[in-house]
């Protein structure tokens, strides 16, 4: 008996040490990003490095976020583009995924399983493989260099998971609730809007945040479909910055930080929904 308790305590210590190391591994790179972003360019280019910035400066942040200078205007432009693309993708994803998930959950039409699993298979396809045909397609549709080309593509990234996740929610809402509503005088559509939709709102939030983060972070398609400087999204913009100001590491780190802030905040606030979005399907299987 005592031996086991002792063993458990040994595991407990190992657990704490492991978690501490893992947290350091996770955090230190980001801490270094932050520290660097608050240094001057000169201070950043020291060997050995300045472990702690001697002269803390927010100069880089002022430059990036101020519309008064060229760099700031560009960066804010990228940020606005990213926001717009991500927001549009999110809204469209929900609008497309909700009815589809509902149909897959409630209706028994022929080909339902086949269609459902082919939608899921989207997760399997490498983005880069689709790049060429989509590039050709977008050229043909005259969508190259438009945000629409990205929105359309991003839509399909989040869609399979969104449909899968929401279907799980609808499966768990008893059909009798809708039946009751229909008997109480609602049409099928009213029953859906008034009864089912509010109950699936956690799923819709999870779907939305997942789509938003995917769209915000996407790089390859934005890199390929856009070349007009004013249309770029943040990840591509970040890369452009780097090629233009190769040695300005504090600036690049500040830009990386600003780029990460919206998704990290969104994620931390809505963590449980996001985690649910990622894990729902796998755990049920």
């Amino acid at each position: 008996m005592r031996a086991r308790v002792h063993g458990d305590r040994g595991w407990g210590i190992a657990r704490v040490v492991f978690l501490a190391l893992l947290t350091l591994f996770t955090l230190l790179p980001m801490v270094w990003m932050l520290l660097t972003s608050m240094k001057t360019q000169f201070a950043a280019s020291q060997y050995p490095p300045e472990w702690w910035p001697r002269n803390v400066t927010f100069e880089q942040y002022f430059i990036l976020l101020s519309p008064a200078n060229e760099t700031g205007r560009e960066f804010l432009r990228y940020m606005f583009n990213s926001l717009w693309v991500s927001f549009a993708t999110t809204v469209l994803s929900v609008m497309v995924a909700v009815p589809a998930a509902y149909a897959f959950s409630r209706f028994r039409f022929p080909g339902r399983n086949l269609l459902f699993y082919s939608v899921l298979l989207r997760n399997m396809f490498p983005a880069v493989v689709f790049l060429m045909p989509l590039f050709i397609l977008m050229r043909w549709l005259h969508l190259v260099n438009t945000e629409l080309s990205l929105i359309l593509t991003y839509l399909t990234f989040g869609l399979p998971l969104s449909i899968w996740l929401l279907k799980g929610f609808y499966d768990n809402i008893p059909a009798q609730l809708e039946q009751a509503a229909r008997i109480d005088g609602a049409t099928r559509f009213q029953a859906f809007i008034q009864i089912v939709m509010p109950l699936s709102s956690p799923g819709i939030i999870a779907t939305a945040i997942y789509s938003f983060i995917l769209a915000w972070n996407e790089y390859v398609y934005a890199l390929t479909f856009l070349n007009d400087k004013s249309k770029l999204t943040l990840p591509v913009g970040l890369q452009r910055f780097f090629t233009e100001y190769t040695t300005n590491w504090p600036g690049l780190m500040a830009a990386s930080f600003i780029t990460s802030v919206p998704v990290v905040v969104l994620f931390l606030v809505l963590q449980k929904y996001f985690v649910r979005a990622l894990t729902e399907g796998a755990v049920k299987a």
Binding site: P174, Q176, L177, Q179, A180, A181, R182, I183, D184, G185, A186, T187, I195, P198, L199
Partner: peptide, 20 residues
Amino acid sequence: LDPKDRDIAMVFQNYALYPN
């Protein structure tokens, strides 16, 4: 006819109360 047009009321086994 749709259920809503039949003018009937129904009580369900699990009550089907609107949880929200």
